[in-house]
């Protein structure tokens, strides 16, 4: 099949729209996660989301909305537990991480006759995104973009130095909870595409790369969104070319590009010496 014929397929078009939509969220939220050093926290929220998936499957309810509510609750709980001592909280995050994951696995196992689809939420399948999910993702994007634009100045100050931001009257606690909720909803919308096991890679690799080439937080958000889209598109093509799953293909492509860029910079640095 030629590339043009491929692009004519409905499911491919859906996949491309989904890639754009998750890249918008991944760029903004990923940049905030990286500069606030919340990568482990994001891992915790992502794995806890599995508890939401299990709950939805067990109760026979639609997965994305139930997981959205469940994960938001988990994010608020983690926020309340870690609000005071942000640095000494990895144990708590680890416990909730494991508990959410275990709950999901148990509930899925208890669901009679449920076999298929489990892997969908672990590794994602961007090629089966339904139209209704695209609308849901667009809605989450709209919320994320509006909040990030409106609170940009506060988020900048909060991310740079939260203690100082408090002395300026900035509502730091509110921003922290807002950020965790944005992480939760980003995780939920990305579950479908890359799967929750691989969410962290798409929320961290693009910002890590973007941080090397920008002087501002806004620039970092835009550039990591662009990197995320590049990874998704290149990954999708790799998935088609090598006939492998789309989720792992996207992440493998992202890691490969990251290594090439970072390794290339090192080599140039050595050569210049």
């Amino acid at each position: 099949m030629s590339l043009l014929e491929l692009l004519g397929q409905g499911f491919v078009q859906h996949a491309l729209i989904a890639a754009v939509l998750i890249s918008i969220a991944a760029g903004i939220v990923g940049a905030l996660v990286v500069v606030n050093r919340l990568v482990f926290m994001t891992g915790g929220i992502a794995h806890t989301a599995y508890g939401g998936v299990g709950t939805a499957i067990y109760l026979g309810l639609p997965v994305l909305p139930v997981t959205g509510v469940f994960t938001a609750g988990a994010a608020l709980l983690l926020g309340a537990l870690t609000r005071r001592k942000r640095e000494r909280t990895d144990t708590l995050i680890g416990v909730i991480w494991a508990a959410g994951m275990a709950l999901g696995l148990i509930l899925v196992e208890l669901t009679p006759g449920y076999q298929a689809g489990l892997m969908t939420y672990l590794f994602g399948s961007i090629l089966t995104v339904a139209t209704v999910d695209l609308w849901l993702m667009a809605g989450i994007d709209a919320v994320i973009v509006s909040l990030a634009l409106y609170y940009y100045r506060d988020l900048l100050s909060f991310s740079f130095d939260p203690v100082y931001a408090r002395t300026r009257g900035i509502p730091v606690t509110g921003l922290y909870f807002m950020l965790l909720l944005l992480v939760a909803e980003t995780v939920v919308m990305m579950i479908q595409v890359v799967g929750l096991l691989l969410v962290i890679a798409l929320l961290t690799l693009p910002p890590y790369l973007a941080q090397r080439y920008t002087r501002t937080l806004g620039g970092m958000m835009l550039l990591s969104g662009a990197f995320s889209l590049l990874f998704c598109l290149a990954g999708l093509y790799a998935s088609y070319w090598f006939d492998i799953g789309s989720g792992p293909a996207i992440i493998a492509t992202a890691c490969a590009i990251y290594l090439v860029v970072v390794g290339g910079e090192r080599l140039i640095g050595i050569a210049r010496r």
Binding site: Y150, Y151, R153, D161, R168, T216, G219
Partner: peptide
């Protein structure tokens, strides 16, 4: 990722200006 100017601007109190 912040310029010197942006860091200095963080000294402004939280107010009505957003965006």
């Amino acid at each position: 990722p912040a310029t010197v100017e942006q860091v200095v601007l963080m000294g402004l109190p939280h107010g009505r200006r957003h965006g």
